[in-house]
Amino acid sequence: MALKKFAAFGCAALLVAWSSPSFAEPEPASCRNLRFADNGWTDITSVTALASVVFEALGYKPSTTMASVPISFAGLKNKQLDVSLGYWWPLQQLQVQPLLDSKSINMIEPPNLSGAKATLAVPGYAWAAGLKSFDDIARYRKELDGKIYGIESGSSANAKIQKMIDQNLHGLGGFKLVESSEAGMLVTLERAIRNQKWLVFWGWEPHPMNIQFSINYLSGGDATFGPNYGEARVYTLTATDFLERCPNAGKLVTQLRFSTQLENQLMQAVMNKTRPAEAARAYLKQNPQVLDPWLADVKTFDGKDGLAAAKAQLGL
């Protein structure tokens, strides 16, 4: 949305800066210490590590702050953070839209990931036995122990689940929302599948859970989570002054594009205990072509050709 507004208002100066010879000049020293937000979800951790590795190869010194979704958005608003790669739309729209409307943060168009989804899911054996839609959940209250497993406290996903319970949507009145971290929820899922226990949980894709476990997403949740099983896009957010203050770093940030296949591979490595930065470097060695569009017309921090420098630094 922010970039559309720049274009609409003819903010040509920024666009010219991205293509002008002045790009050979180093950015302000403050831009070298690039500050990423990470809400702790494995997909965001993985792509943030990937972006950080690329920035390091360009001579920047990126850092990552682990923070909950609300705190990370507040950090961008207060300019304590520069970039978040993790705005899941429409899941987090209620939290983010007021910040966009007040021009407290910027959103980069187009999204860095399309074709994602996020909604309630169940193990395959529960789905095969009849738990296939939101309207089926209440029928199996006993098998589910009256619980729905969400993610971390304060998340939009949990808020939507709790709203369904409070309003008795789909007959869910009286169910209990169990809040947990992503890792905690996945441990619960793995244990349930091992014991063939029924479970309704918050699931999403991209995520290795989709290839590690036999799971199915529930239909009928369009009113709460959106059509096509909560089809989602993931956007990059920045502090309002970031793109203008750090045009070279900003150009790379706006050109980052990921795919579900890329993220599934990265996330699986991370969840298998590979350090995120190591997983990112390994992915780039196997897929160096992803750097070409990301680093088009991007320079190193000190003004040299970015693509050549990054490939040399990464041994590609």
Rank of each mutant, 00 (worst) to 15 (best):
residue 263 E to K: 05
residue 281 R to S: 09
residue 117 K to D: 09
residue 307 L to Y: 02
residue 69 V to P: 02
residue 65 T to S: 12
residue 86 G to F: 00
residue 312 A to M: 07
residue 70 P to C: 04
residue 24 A to F: 15
residue 77 K to M: 11
residue 300 T to G: 13
residue 161 I to V: 14
residue 210 N to F: 06
residue 196 Q to T: 11
residue 95 Q to H: 11
residue 115 G to K: 05
residue 168 N to D: 15
residue 59 G to V: 06
residue 297 D to F: 09
residue 250 G to H: 02
residue 198 W to Q: 15
residue 73 F to P: 02
residue 9 F to S: 13
residue 28 P to N: 13
residue 58 L to C: 08
residue 268 Q to I: 07
residue 96 V to G: 09
residue 13 A to Y: 10
residue 74 A to E: 14
residue 176 K to A: 11
residue 225 F to Y: 11
residue 265 Q to G: 14
residue 244 E to R: 08
residue 33 N to M: 11
residue 5 K to M: 06
residue 109 E to Q: 07
residue 296 A to S: 09
residue 246 C to E: 03
residue 235 Y to G: 01
residue 253 V to P: 03
residue 210 N to G: 13
residue 90 P to N: 04
residue 57 A to I: 05
residue 57 A to R: 02
residue 261 Q to H: 08
residue 242 F to W: 00
residue 47 V to G: 06
residue 253 V to D: 06
residue 170 H to E: 08
residue 104 S to I: 05
residue 213 F to Q: 15
residue 117 K to S: 12
residue 51 A to Y: 00
residue 283 Y to I: 12
residue 275 R to Y: 09
residue 112 N to G: 05
residue 10 G to F: 01
residue 177 L to E: 04
residue 130 G to W: 06
residue 249 A to Y: 01
residue 97 Q to H: 07
residue 84 S to I: 00
residue 156 S to N: 10
residue 43 D to L: 13
residue 21 P to H: 10
residue 98 P to I: 08
residue 144 L to I: 05
residue 183 A to H: 05
residue 163 K to M: 12
residue 62 P to T: 10
residue 251 K to G: 07
residue 194 R to Q: 14
residue 98 P to D: 13
residue 188 T to V: 11
residue 180 S to C: 06
residue 144 L to T: 04
residue 70 P to W: 02
residue 42 T to R: 08
residue 299 K to M: 07
residue 176 K to D: 12
residue 194 R to P: 01
residue 302 D to L: 08
residue 28 P to L: 15
residue 41 W to V: 07
residue 134 F to Q: 01
residue 18 W to E: 01
residue 136 D to Y: 07
residue 146 G to Q: 04
residue 18 W to P: 00
residue 61 K to A: 14
residue 300 T to P: 06
residue 313 Q to H: 14
residue 114 S to V: 14
residue 162 Q to V: 04
residue 255 Q to E: 06
residue 169 L to S: 12
residue 33 N to D: 15
residue 113 L to M: 02
residue 305 D to N: 10
residue 74 A to V: 07
residue 219 S to P: 04
residue 185 M to V: 10
residue 287 N to C: 10
residue 35 R to T: 05
residue 64 T to E: 15
residue 261 Q to C: 08
residue 39 N to I: 10
residue 196 Q to N: 15
residue 118 A to W: 05
residue 244 E to Q: 11
residue 273 K to A: 08
residue 219 S to E: 12
residue 156 S to I: 05
residue 255 Q to S: 12
residue 42 T to S: 14
residue 75 G to L: 01
residue 204 W to G: 11
residue 160 K to V: 03
residue 56 E to F: 07
residue 140 Y to W: 11
residue 179 E to F: 03
residue 205 E to Q: 04
residue 314 L to E: 10
residue 57 A to P: 05
residue 306 G to M: 00
residue 84 S to N: 04
residue 316 L to S: 01
residue 236 T to M: 09
residue 259 S to R: 01
residue 108 I to R: 00
residue 143 E to F: 09
residue 51 A to R: 01
residue 113 L to V: 04
